[in-house]
Computed example of a mutant assay.
Amino acid sequence: MDDVMLPLGMGIFGFLLAALLQIHTAQYERLSLQYRQSQDDSRENQLLLTEKNKALIEKQDYEIYTATLRERNRIAREIHDNVGHVLSRSILLLGAARAVNRQTELHPMLDHLDDSLNSAMDSIRSSVHDLHDDSVNLEDTIRGLAHGFTFCPVLIHYDMSLLVPREIKYCLISITKEALSNVMRHSNASQVRITLQEHPALYQLCVEDNGTQIAPGCLKAGSSQSGIGLTNIQDRIRALNGNLQISADSGFRIFITIPKKEDL
Rank of each mutant, 00 (worst) to 15 (best):
N101M: 01
N232M: 08
D159P: 03
S127R: 08
Y65E: 01
L155S: 10
N232Y: 14
G217V: 10
I12N: 04
I194N: 04
S88M: 09
G211F: 01
I246C: 07
E208W: 02
V192L: 13
L87P: 02
A96M: 15
A97F: 06
K54M: 10
A67N: 15
S247C: 08
S42T: 13
K54S: 14
L196E: 12
G251I: 06
Y62V: 05
P108K: 06
L205T: 04
Q34W: 08
F13T: 09
P153Y: 09
H85I: 07
L230T: 11
L264Y: 03
T66I: 15
E29N: 13
R185C: 08
G84A: 07
T141H: 12
D130H: 13
L163S: 12
L17W: 14
L138R: 02
N210E: 06
L106S: 00
E78I: 14
Y35N: 13
R193W: 03
I214E: 12
L31T: 13
T212R: 08
Q197R: 12
I12D: 05
I124F: 02
Q191F: 08
P108L: 01
M5K: 12
D3C: 09
P259H: 02
V207E: 00
E71G: 04
D122N: 09
F252S: 01
N241Y: 13
R185A: 14
D134F: 06
R70I: 15
D209G: 05
M109R: 06
D133G: 03
R193V: 10
Y158T: 03
D40A: 10
S42R: 12
M121G: 04
T231W: 11
P216W: 00
N182D: 07
Y203Q: 01
L155T: 05
C206R: 15
R253G: 01
R98K: 14
D115P: 02
